[in-house]
């Protein structure tokens, strides 16, 4: 299959990209890494009249520390999650998730901004930015705004991004020494979309879980916070009973649909198993000094 004919415009600045989008109404799409968009064009699931290439906009690149936040440019490639020292130090959950994202060649080209803006409910990074409580920096005709992850993911492939708006950076709260992370997913084959996946970040105080954010993916239309699980763990001393209680609480957070190959009950079961494993690994690391 080949894409429908389109015009191509290579933007050099964010303003150029926004102007091009504004002038073409709903007929334009931004292309970053293109690792999901190009197949969608080839299959004609999408057929924009204009493709605005944002790969050459310098202001979309770079990882910088800004006060209590790490600003990660939207064009940061997945492979950079594995090599960028600031990400290793201040956003280790992104680094932990990166090896699970597709395959090496896809990671060489795919971008964090593209993955988050697409909001595929089976993708790793949208769930990770949700777990991290990240904020999305959005540029549009009306200027810049920041939207928290809890408000950003609206529905299936639908985000707070309005037509003509561009995601320019993801801001992540700096990782602290008393925090612990865990990430894993269950997939039939390495690199395939996960049957279920989960990322979490816990803040530990005197061996108690002061606060924890747990996000799952491949469990519904959007990456999903497990708020009942979080409530069951907050302020608690983590032990086997508490992990079992958290697993039971998961039933209140997820309502997956039956799909052709994965019944809802199976997906929920797998989510409980995965949650138990991750909390178990967290338990073993509570007393560590980072």
């Amino acid at each position: 299959m080949k894409a429908r004919a389109f015009s191509y415009f290579r933007a050099r600045t964010i303003d150029e990209a926004l102007d091009a989008a504004a002038r073409s109404g709903d007929e334009a799409r931004f292309i970053a890494g293109g690792q999901s968009l190009v197949p969608a064009l080839a299959l004609r699931l999408q057929a924009p009249r204009l493709l605005i290439d944002i790969n050459h906009i310098d202001d979309l690149s770079g990882v910088t520390r800004e006060g209590e936040w790490l600003r990660i440019g939207a064009l940061t490639r997945h492979c950079q999650m594995l090599t960028e020292p600031l990400i290793a130090q201040f956003a280790p959950l992104l680094r932990a998730a990166a090896p699970y994202v597709a395959h090496p060649a896809i990671r060489n080209r795919g971008t964090l901004g593209g993955s988050v803006a697409l909001a595929d409910p089976a993708s790793e990074f949208p769930a990770v930015v949700l777990a991290l409580g990240a904020e999305m920096e959005i540029a549009g005709p009306a200027g810049r705004r920041r939207v928290g992850a809890d408000e950003f993911f609206v529905d299936l492939f639908e985000t707070a991004l309005a037509p003509g708006e561009l995601l320019v950076a993801v801001h992540v709260p700096l990782f602290r020494a008393n925090q612990r992370i865990a990430f894993d997913e269950l997939a039939r084959r390495r690199g395939d979309y996960a049957l279920v996946g989960c990322g979490m970040i816990a803040t530990v105080e005197q061996d108690l879980i002061a606060d924890i954010r747990v996000a799952l993916f491949s469990v519904g239309n959007v990456p999903t916070r497990a708020r009942s699980v979080e409530a069951a763990l907050a302020g608690a001393c983590l032990d086997a009973d508490r992990i079992a209680a958290a697993q039971a609480a998961l039933d209140g957070d997820l309502a997956p649909d039956d799909s052709d190959d994965v019944p809802a009950a199976m997906r929920l079961h797998l989510a409980r198993v995965l949650l138990g494993r991750l909390l178990g690994s967290l338990l073993g690391r509570l007393g560590e000094t980072a």
Binding site: Y8, R10, G34, V38, N55, P104, A105, N108, R109
Partner: peptide, 17 residues
């Protein structure tokens, strides 16, 4: 592409300018 392996089916030739 500039020294890193990428899928030639997942980019348009015009992007390689």
């Amino acid at each position: 592409l500039d020294g890193r392996a990428v899928h030639a089916c997942l980019m348009f030739a015009v992007q390689a300018d």
